[in-house]
Nucleic acid binder design. Structure first.
Lengths: 230, 230
DNA sequence: CGAGAAGTTGATGTGAGTCAAAACGAGTGG
DNA sequence: CCACTCGTTTTGACTCACATCAACTTCTCG
């Protein structure tokens, strides 16, 4: 019951892929796994390098990014607690995985993890369902990147963040206040913009009364409807 | 052996998901399936509607597209023969699926198809692997949509098409000639551009000697290296 | 051959990128 | 507690790639 003990305090025990395993099966997986911490800016995987690991994200936020040969960068996905990291059966890593803040992971060597996956149909099915969901999300993001204006991208992004990173709010429908887990530069990478454009659009939304900015990190959504209109 | 007979002549018998099934298993699937043809412009699935079917694409090309509330459209994926269509376990369809030319499909009602998937681990695994590959592709496309110039997008797209739709070529490394399965407008939808920009960039590539255009459809890749440089 | 669709080309406008400088904020040491 | 510094953010002036609007040309197919 050692594994059950290790995992019993796990914040994502019943939300990550592990949710498909019983305590005994969890033992097998745990024999392979290893906790790991990353601090802001540290990279777990480099695009193009050999793909050695898969992982479950326990806490914090990771970014998945792609780079053109000449150095232009684009964040192609954000990973939140309970999300799965890595690509089983791929020899090379597709994208670079970097911590946006302090991060805790449950890391598994890829090959043995593949074997566990192959032996546990329910886990494999859960991964399939999540991958299908991730694919839908990525495709939705394609629409946003290609067809929305900078203003629309920002508004959508702020609403998304507000739902995910729940901060304090006075009343249920009232203004929400929280801290960005991303810098302006990282937001620009996510939205396919430049840092200056992000800053300008935020200033504009502030001037219009839709949001309020406190310092570089703090933000309050003052008028949700106004954001949704964009 | 009826099913084996039906499928024995199938162009994608060993490239589509069916590749994971033996002839007996194929019988089960075939009992559910139904051949269907679409002509250019016909739509198989509408985004937002109930998700009723999955399918294997036998021949032709399909586009997957997303639309903003105000009508801006973006193609978020192209499907080629042997590709899988639809999203199992989703109640609503994510995207609109439309034929770019004449198309043949092997269509299955979604719910029964899910049961087959659940009963055939190897097929489920194959679908997982393909979904992971599709996810990688979609993310790569995000980089292209967000960070490449119109010229770069076109060059990349032409190279991709040349590899996929193999036409006639004089020598192995020499010029390739083939027909677009897409109109200028559809290319614009794929690349996140307007029809005019696509046309202009093609003209420019022609003027530079990288390609040759014959009529609205025909194209010859004259200088592959020049395209790769962009 | 003719009509309608698809594609090309040109003139003009504009949203976002680029370059540059100022303002701000967080952390350090006097 | 304040002065100093480094990194981030904001703001401004300018540029440019692509969109838009519009006219014209070329294909396609009955």
């Amino acid at each position: 019951m050692i594994a059950a003990h290790i995992c019993s305090g796990c914040a994502v025990r019943d939300r990550a892929l592990c949710a498909s395993l019983d305590d005994v099966e969890l033992d097998t997986l745990n024999a392979l796994g290893q906790r790991r911490r990353l601090t802001r800016g540290q990279t777990l995987v480099w695009a193009g390098e050999e793909s050695l690991v898969c992982a479950n994200l326990l806490s914090g936020v990771l970014k998945l990014s792609a780079v053109t040969p000449d150095g232009r960068e684009q964040v192609v996905g954000l990973l939140y607690p309970a999300d799965f990291v890595g690509r089983p059966w791929a020899e090379l890593a597709d994208f670079t995985v970097t911590a946006l803040g302090d991060v805790e992971l449950c890391v598994f060597p890829r090959k043995p993890f593949e074997r566990v996956l192959e032996d546990h149909v329910r886990m494999e099915r859960l991964l399939l369902q999540r991958t299908l969901a991730a694919l839908e999300e990525a495709r939705g993001r394609m629409l946003a990147l290609a067809r929305l204006s900078a203003r629309e991208k920002l508004a959508g992004f702020l609403l998304d963040m507000a739902d995910r990173v729940q901060g304090c709010r006075a009343t249920a429908s009232g203004p929400v206040t929280f801290d960005f887990p991303l810098t302006r530069g990282e937001m620009a990478e996510v939205l396919g913009l430049t840092i200056e454009t992000v800053s300008r659009q935020l200033s504009r939304l502030k001037a219009e009364g839709a949001i309020n900015l406190m310092g570089a990190r703090g933000i309050t959504i003052r008028d949700r409807a106004l954001l949704e209109a964009a």
